[in-house]
Design a binder for these strands. Structure first.
Lengths: 150, 150
DNA sequence: CTGTGTGCAAATGTTTTGCATTCGC
DNA sequence: GCGAATGCAAAACATTTGCACACAG
């Protein structure tokens, strides 16, 4: 299993250090869109000298070559995702959990984009997960968002 | 012109303080999606004692009642938008400028959302503006993003 | 008058940076 | 061996918080 990861790194021109292999594997295994610190905490038992700044540096390298995507959802910290297939994200306004959902086809009118050279799009849906619907107002929205059209 | 702003604030249950009026007017006038500090810098000449923390507090109030939208585009600081009509954003990967574009119709399959209570969606398109296409590699991407499917 | 909003300073939390050492290739 | 990556400490930055005073309604 390490093999696939090592090859992926090399194929993208990155040196396969143990930290990078470990981090990419962890990120490919998880589907909860962890933050840099989440990843650091998860890996520390297995690799007690792993520095948080190395996690950041590694995530930056992986993002630069396209193996990882950074998500900024306005929670104060960024989340990371190593799942390649294009998808949208569904965020719970109560507890902040993020799950992957299929990407609706985006009919992007070239006229919209004007003279921009178009690269890609990101779609995020917001709503309330079952548990947060139940616990009603117990948990306030993370970083206030009550309505907001756009 | 101040009148419309004052009424908008009251209609949403907010006290119409000079700071709130000034800030909402500035934000409604601008189309460049300024950050809290951009706004503070713009307003300081007109209101020399305006505190940055007041800008943040005010933006939070305005966001809470839906008069303002906060955008987290992964630049390290958030941007704000007071234009109500639903729209998507088009971000230049070179210089970071953000413009409003029409929102493509999102065919959101209810099954996708599972048991979430759906609230709203955000769509961001990325690309290169004409000027950054020209100056090719002069300016690196803000906070590295070269490809990235999702 | 009452309670919310403001200004100021200090704290918080995340992400970045500088630099010596280690290690992949 | 060479250059890139790591670990550690310190810095930088945006944002939040605590609290006394001011002011909108």
């Amino acid at each position: 299993m390490a093999t696939g990861t090592v090859e992926a790194l090399r194929r993208h021109g990155l040196r396969a250090t143990p930290q990078r292999v470990m981090l990419l594997e962890e990120l490919r295994r998880r589907h909860d869109h962890p933050s840099a610190e989440d990843l650091h905490r998860s890996l520390l038992p297995r690799s007690p000298t792993l520095a948080l700044s190395t996690v950041y540096a590694t995530l930056e390298s992986l993002e630069r070559v396209g193996l990882v995507t950074r998500l900024s959802l306005g929670e104060g910290r960024d989340r990371y995702d190593a799942h390649a297939h294009p998808h949208a994200h569904l965020v719970c306004l109560g507890c902040g959990q993020v799950q992957d959902v299929p990407l609706p086809p985006l009919a992007l009118d070239p006229a919209q984009v004007g003279s921009f050279r178009y690269a890609y799009s990101r779609v995020v849906h917001y709503g309330w997960c079952p548990r947060c619907q139940a616990s009603a107002k117990d948990i306030g929205p993370r970083r206030g968002r009550e309505e907001c059209p756009p």
